[in-house]
């Protein structure tokens, strides 16, 4: 019994900041610029949401969606074949170990350490200040993750299925698309959701590589709202809630997958 109370209590405690955000997004300024500790608004208002809607800020959500979808698509298209190759083929001179080691270093390296030359790469490609450029830059975070995660999933697909298909004369592409991909579907979906969350929340590259305000992603925009002088907490909370809803819904979907990622990291 104590265990249940403690669990729910801790859970509530960790949710108060979120609850505060929801409540503040509904409060008129006079209620949050105060010393009151009342969480719930006395006089709820949708004014902050209206301001965001009127100023076209919802379009920034679209930017985040475009970047997230692009990041997911590219990381799966490049990551799945790579993971398959590493799982199924003998590569010469322990290339797989070298490659995975490099992927690991990239996964662990701080993004800021690559940011300066990356800026120049993107400029050379003419992709500064474009979503495509940001999608590419995001691969530094997404692709190592996708490869590591998919590697575990591919290894879990028994090779005997493919051998059976091979005996039936199925070519490689057919085998991959008709046997491996369907069996991998849960793994692909889980990977996609994680990469999407990662991209949705990514801040540093969006800050550095996107210049035009209408192309900002949500975190980059929120950062401009957290300025030194103002306490526009209502608008900030409304924006924060809009930016958080998709990932909060996603976490319900992939809680199982989260545990899975952990076991991938283990092997």
């Amino acid at each position: 019994m104590i265990r249940i109370v403690a669990a729910f209590g801790l859970c509530a405690l960790s949710l108060i900041p979120l609850l505060w955000m929801v409540a503040t997004s509904l409060k008129p300024p006079a209620e949050y610029v105060s010393t009151s500790i009342a969480l719930w608004p006395q006089d709820p208002t949708l004014a902050h949401y209206r301001v965001l809607l009127d100023s076209g800020m919802w379009r920034l959500g679209l930017n985040s969606v475009v970047v997230a979808l692009g990041t997911v698509a590219l990381s799966l298209l490049a990551g799945l074949p790579a993971a398959y190759a590493l799982a199924r083929f003998e590569l010469p001179r322990r290339f797989d170990i070298v490659f995975l080691g490099f992927v690991l270093v990239i996964k662990l390296a701080p993004p800021i350490a690559l940011a300066i030359p990356l800026y120049q790469v993107l400029r050379a490609l003419g992709l500064l200040d474009t979503h495509l450029g940001l999608i590419l830059a995001n691969q530094i975070l997404a692709l190592p993750f996708a490869i590591w995660m998919l590697l575990g999933f591919v290894r879990d697909v028994p090779y005997s299925f493919e051998e059976a298909a091979m005996l039936d004369g199925a070519g490689f592409v057919k085998r991959l698309l008709q046997i491996v991909v369907p069996l991998l579907m849960p793994g692909l979906v889980a990977t996609a959701v994680f990469v999407a969350i990662m991209s949705w929340n990514e801040f540093l590259f969006a800050l550095l590589f996107i210049q035009t305000p209408s192309k900002f992603t949500l975190p980059a925009f929120i950062a401009t709202l957290i300025n030194e002088d103002e306490t526009l907490w209502g608008r900030l909370s409304a924006m924060g809630l809009i930016a958080s809803l998709p990932v909060l819904l996603a976490v319900g979907l992939v809680r199982r997958g989260l545990t899975r990622e952990v076991s991938v990291d283990q092997h």
Partner: peptide, 14 residues
């Protein structure tokens, strides 16, 4: 798990 999936910018704002 909710706090973990939030954008760090949202967390910081709060």
């Amino acid at each position: 798990l909710a706090p973990f999936v939030l954008s760090t910018m949202v967390v910081t704002a709060i």
